[in-house]
Design a protein around this nucleic acid. Structure first.
Length: 251
DNA sequence: AAAGACTGCAACCGCGCGCGT
DNA sequence: CACGCGCGCGGTTGCAGTCTT
């Protein structure tokens, strides 16, 4: 790929880049977006370096991929990060650090870039005092919501345990050929289920006294164990009257 | 009302990994 | 094994909009 190095003096919208290197830079136009969307609709994602050749777009493959992933993908969620999502970001960042793409996998519709930007503007060290003050009042509100989320996560955890029990019953009841097949399947799933239950709740390690599991570990926690399960849509869970009593050790 | 400070976010860059040859 | 290519990731930049003084 041609070098795309740009000096600050040239600026990111420089025509010099286009004339000398060939790739256009800077903000995307609606026409460019349209071309890229059409291309992906026809050819699918991937092979980004061939996009310019096939569409006539004067954009590098890298730029095309970025534009698609961060802005044009149809499954992207628009709008502000919700307090709920913020909680998840805080939790997952505590677990994984700056592994934004890993964190993004737990937040359907949000991109790593979006989360990274959000983190940097809201939680990065060295924020101004005013910002901190604003954040503090926001945090107070958030704490109230945390209590509710805690209960919701516990509810979800119980649900997984029920699933495990049901699966166990299936194994015990059916010893026919069909049952054998189920056992094979279940055996394959079992370790994953076990791991899932160990940190089904993103906040579970807090409830367990913190620091457990493979926090900070490399590799093994790459895949999000609850992918495919809609953890974050528990709005209609009914809270018992005594849930207020449950403390919440938040930071 | 104006100027400066701050925030949000799109987009770029360099680096490293995985894969095919 | 070495190399090149494509891609994904995390860090950074810069601009437009908003807020504060």
């Amino acid at each position: 790929m041609a070098s795309t190095t740009t000096t600050t003096m040239e600026g990111q919208f420089s025509w010099i880049n286009y004339l000398e290197v060939g790739w256009r830079k800077g903000p995307w136009t609606p026409q460019e977006d349209k071309l890229l969307i059409e291309h992906v609709n026809i050819h699918g994602e991937g092979r980004w370096n061939s996009v310019s050749r096939l569409t006539g777009l004067k954009r590098s493959g890298k730029s095309c991929r970025l534009r698609w992933v961060n802005y044009l993908r149809p499954d992207l969620k628009r709008g502000k990060i919700t307090p709920h999502e913020e909680t998840i970001i805080l939790e997952l960042h505590a677990r994984w650090g700056n592994r934004w793409s890993t964190i993004a996998r737990s937040l359907p519709g949000r991109t790593d870039n979006e989360i990274k930007n959000y983190w940097r503007t809201h939680f990065k060290k060295g924020k101004s005092t005013k910002s901190v003050e604003r954040e503090r009042s926001r945090f107070t509100r958030q704490q109230q919501e945390q209590k509710q989320y805690q209960y919701q996560y516990q509810y979800q955890y119980q649900y997984v345990e029920e699933l495990q029990q049901q699966q166990q019953q299936l194994l015990e009841v059916d010893s026919t050929t069909k049952g054998m097949m189920l056992q094979v399947e279940a055996a394959a799933v079992a370790p994953e289920m076990q791991e899932m239950s160990s940190y089904m709740s993103p906040l579970s390690y807090m409830f367990q006294g913190g620091g457990g599991g493979n926090a900070g570990g490399e590799g093994s926690s790459e895949e999000v164990p609850w992918a495919g399960i809609n953890l974050w849509n528990l709005d209609d869970v009914q809270l018992p009257a005594d849930h207020e009593d449950q403390g919440f050790p938040f930071y």
